[in-house]
Design a protein around this nucleic acid. Structure first.
Lengths: 138, 138
DNA sequence: CAGTATCCTTGCGGATACTG
DNA sequence: CAGTATCCGCAAGGATACTG
């Protein structure tokens, strides 16, 4: 995409966002930067319906607390569905919602783009850190 | 995109990410959830090179501190370029880098997707909050 | 004008221990 | 098994005041 049409389409996309939508946008997209959110979305997208413990096993390093919390946030935003079987030996399964699949679909080109530019990011980092020994960025 | 090909392409995209890349991915995408980052990227994308104060004027509600900090982070990640004219009356301009334009380009479909699903997100929220009066999610 | 410095509150992420 | 409860350190975001 050339810059003129890029700018035009970004204006169109941004003008369609009200002030309320702006907050919503950041809340939804905050999952992108979260430690576990997208990993869980990916796991559920690839494997379908999974039990709590099974997700935990696939997310290397996650603690019970963070797993539960992240699942709650995803559920709250409607990205995953929670099925509690109400059995005495607890049994809860999670599944991507339609919107959750949509998010996964949106993320794929983004991941590809990050990979394609990984070296540029790393170079920018080291160049910045060299110029700004340890001041700045706090 | 149907689910089978969605899953296949997400696996391809995710397998291409090493453990290191995974951290990088979250760092880059964390801008998506930040309060001011994408607003600044958008402003610079639409208007080209801008002075510090001019950006501040366009970002309703930003404080000096957050503006400077966010600009530093964007600069550190190579998304924007900083031009200090070294004049006695300070004069600093910022501009999107090539990578920064790339990010803006990546974000546009994402914004559109959020708008298209805004009602679903809001409904999920209120439904969740009704079921979970004030427990959960902390 | 383009920042720093200081103080504050909130939430993220994690460690550990406990429960029905 | 699927969570809570309690603790911690750190960073995000903001309010306010100051500086070359």
């Amino acid at each position: 995409m050339d810059r003129k049409s890029l700018i035009a389409s970004s204006q169109a996309a941004c003008d369609a966002l009200s002030a309320d939508d702006d907050g919503l946008k950041r809340e939804v997209l905050s999952h992108a930067g979260n430690r576990w959110s997208l990993g869980i979305v990916y796991a559920l997208g690839v494997s379908g319906r999974l039990r709590h413990a099974e997700i935990g096993r696939r997310m290397e390093g996650v603690t019970q607390r963070m797993l539960t919390r992240t699942l709650r946030q995803l559920e709250r935003d409607g990205l995953i569905l929670r099925y509690d079987y109400q059995e005495k030996a607890p049994r809860v399964e999670y599944e991507l919602s339609e919107v959750g699949f949509g998010l996964l679909e949106q993320m794929i080109p983004l991941w590809g783009w990050v990979i394609d530019n990984a070296n540029e990011f790393r170079q920018a980092r080291t160049a910045f850190d060299k110029i700004n020994p340890q001041q700045r960025v706090e």
